[in-house]
Write a protein that binds this DNA or RNA. Structure first.
Lengths: 225, 225
DNA sequence: TAGATTGTTAATCGATTAACAATC
DNA sequence: TAGATTGTTAATCGATTAACAATC
């Protein structure tokens, strides 16, 4: 009765399919083929069918996939039905941008808590949420936090992670460029924006470094993740 | 005389090693073993040695790797010596955060251009750069842009990508959650913040959905990328 | 039935890892 | 020389892809 394991690579593509399906649904489309879905998601059709097969068999041969049904299935397997409140810790430039980012609430992750240690920020309001002091994280009268986002300087990221864990948060998205460790049972995912620029720099450099010497050098494309 | 191909997975880890090496250098450390580097980067030692072997043989058996030398090599292979100006298009919450993000300039990517279509924003200054109208992108008297960052709504992302390409930009980092296409020879990389939350949600849900039924269920950890 | 499209197989490709000979 | 640590091999594992039988 246990659900089949979904490969990591597939997990990373499910949100892309979900976004495409949501767009299709908004456009009134009710059925989609693996070929169409692949085009819209930027992958190939074999991969789409293989990925969706891990969810079960929700397509109809000769017809395609039901947009609504597939949306529901992916959403449910991603845990989006239960995932809710996001707390952002650290309201510097990045934290403030994330707090105001429409994309989060739009895709099922309302920002319910904002925390900082700067007294000049505590008490002020941002995107409809009042910034609280980090020391109040986990207080009984505080917001129900399902996911913690770390947007602090690297130097304090581990301390913030520890506080989030102590407050009962079991899923953390970390933007600080440093290694942090969390106990077993806590899910941690990292995003490093400068790293993305460096990786981009590598492929750009690789494909163009020799342009002056050899203008006819073939351009290979970088993986888009 | 051509450099050996570096696997994509390795390219994604080189910036992590570079960050660790920079920290070590700052702390006065001159030599590091694959074991130490692995610990600090959050991977295992075999992977570090394999990854570094693609750069050539810069270690010394029985001793380790020279911190300075390795930093230089990685930095050079990532193209960080030539990579320079970043232009950010779209100065909503995310774009403004990226423009003010210290991490970019700190790691070799100074923000030299800011572009938007909103006349209320054009002419104002942000992080020391005056916001210009998108129509002036690529103007002869404009900044030299090596990397373009798209931080606009999804609906206009393709148009912005086309304009960046027309202006001669050959490397694009795209934050808009939609599929965009660029001509061969242009390197595109995508970051989708809400997608990261959804992937996090999957692993969290998978590892905890059954907690109520089976509190002793083993917790598996999510890949941190 | 005929055409279309899924779901699955199997081959291929790329990434990871342990082990150890090479060598400082 | 003895101890330490790299660089590389080879086995294993996971991801991708084309092909096609199943079937709507």
């Amino acid at each position: 009765m246990s659900l089949p394991r979904i490969p990591d690579a597939t997990v990373g593509r499910l949100p892309v399919y979900l976004r495409v399906l949501t767009d299709l649904d908004g456009a009134g489309v009710t059925t989609v083929s693996s070929e169409q879905l692949a085009d819209l998601a930027g992958v190939n059709a074999a991969k789409v069918r293989k990925d969706l097969s891990y969810l079960g068999t929700y397509g109809t041969r000769g017809v395609g996939y039901g947009v609504d049904y597939l949306r529901f299935e992916i959403s449910s397997r991603l845990g989006l039905a239960t995932a809710t409140g996001v707390a952002i810790v650290g309201l510097g430039n990045l934290g403030r941008a994330l707090a105001s980012h429409r994309g989060f609430a739009d895709r099922g992750f309302p920002v319910v808590g904002l925390f900082d240690v700067d007294d000049a920020k505590v008490g002020t309001e941002l995107a409809g949420v009042t910034i609280a002091h980090l020391d109040t994280l986990g207080a009984p009268d505080g917001p129900a936090v399902a996911i913690g986002v770390i947007a602090t300087p690297a130097a304090v990221a581990q301390d913030v992670a520890d506080r989030l864990v102590a407050a009962g948060v079991r899923a953390i998205l970390d933007f600080a460029p440093t290694l942090i460790s969390v106990p077993a049972g806590v899910t941690l995912r990292k995003v490093d924006l400068a790293l993305e620029l460096q990786v981009l720099s590598y492929y750009h450099h690789r494909d163009h470094a020799l342009d002056a010497d050899d203008p006819a050098a073939p351009s290979r494309s970088a993986p888009t993740r």
